[in-house]
Design a protein around this nucleic acid. Structure first.
Length: 289
DNA sequence: AATGTTTTCAACCGCACAGGA
DNA sequence: ATCCTGTGCGGTTGAAAACAT
């Protein structure tokens, strides 16, 4: 599953490593260490660039590198850490002895994300990651694209076009930006748009119950519409095939669903909907009474 | 068995950052 | 303060392997 070996225009070998190259690199690093990756290939007798050598050593040859399938514990940890750290693969790898950032990254893209694609959240919306702050222009662009995605996803009619959704966003959302660091604070933001919620009152305790799939979709659509002026944040929990998503999303209503994995129809019950935590600004917004 | 499609994952690439000159 | 170099990180690629038709 690797590019076949070839020599580039600079005379450097690229592509798959041969056993002979592996042995040379392993022997050299174990004896002399990697004091300078750029010069190392010259002294080790390899026609490779330093970066290629480093990558091969770190991801494959380094003693202790664990290969093979991830255990359930490792998978859970990756999901949990990704929820906390985002795409900080090296930071995640630091918590999984023997696993490299590259392997975890591959694992995430090929297993976790594929799994999500097969079991998408009803109104999953791409939102901001907590990785880095966005400029105002970027934020507006993303808001617009989120709104478009939502309206496309939900087949909203003209009255809920992307422009009107954005206007709603701009007029109702405000964030407590004073808490950009430290612990989360609370701010009261009337982010809710009852006009989009219809007559469903989600604020009453105990009003949520397990719903058949079709009914869930109806409720989901209502709540999605209600939160579509921001992004939606979902937290999925299940024994095996759904994972936590919320920390990578910001804005919108915080909704927690639990998948009933015992049911073949995958019942999803709404557990709580009282506000949302914005990991970007580290602020908890809750619905005004 | 042959062919097409999807999945996997090692390796590449470009960028950012740190440290030294 | 600026430039240069080395290193590390995250996103992406692409061919082999696995799977489906």
């Amino acid at each position: 599953m690797v590019r076949p070996p070839y020599v580039d225009s600079n005379g450097l070998k690229k592509g798959a490593w041969s056993d002979d190259e592996d042995n040379k690199l392993r022997a050299y690093v174990q004896r002399y260490g990697h004091w300078n990756w750029r010069l190392l290939p010259k002294y080790a007798g390899l026609a490779r660039c330093g970066k290629s050598c480093r990558l091969r050593w770190v991801n494959y040859l380094k003693p202790g590198v664990k290969r093979g399938n991830f255990t359930k514990e490792e998978e859970d940890l990756v999901v949990k850490l990704h929820a906390q750290l985002g795409n900080k693969w090296s930071a995640i790898a630091a918590n999984l002895p023997g696993r490299t950032d590259n392997e975890i990254k591959n694992f995430w893209h090929t297993r976790i994300e594929k799994r999500r694609d097969r079991n998408p959240a009803p109104n999953k919306v791409k939102g901001h990651t907590a990785d880095k702050p966005l400029t105002k222009a970027q934020t507006l662009n993303e808001e617009k694209s989120s709104a478009v995605t939502l309206s496309e996803t939900l087949n909203l009619n003209e009255s809920a076009s992307s422009d009107s959704l954005i206007n709603l966003q701009n007029s109702t959302l405000s964030f407590d930006t004073n808490s950009s660091s430290g612990s989360a604070t609370e701010s009261q933001v009337d982010f809710w748009a009852d006009t989009f919620l219809g007559n469903t009152d989600y604020s009453q305790e105990g009003c949520f119950q397990s719903l058949p799939e079709e009914e869930f979709l109806i409720h989901s659509e209502l709540s999605s519409s209600g939160s579509s002026y921001a992004a939606s944040a979902f937290q999925w929990n299940a024994d095996d095939d759904l994972s936590i998503m919320s920390p990578n999303f910001w804005g919108g209503s915080f909704v927690s669903y639990t998948s009933n994995s015992e049911s073949e129809t995958s019942y999803i019950s709404l557990q709580e909907m009282g506000g949302f935590y914005d990991p970007f600004f580290e602020v908890f917004h809750h619905r005004l009474p």
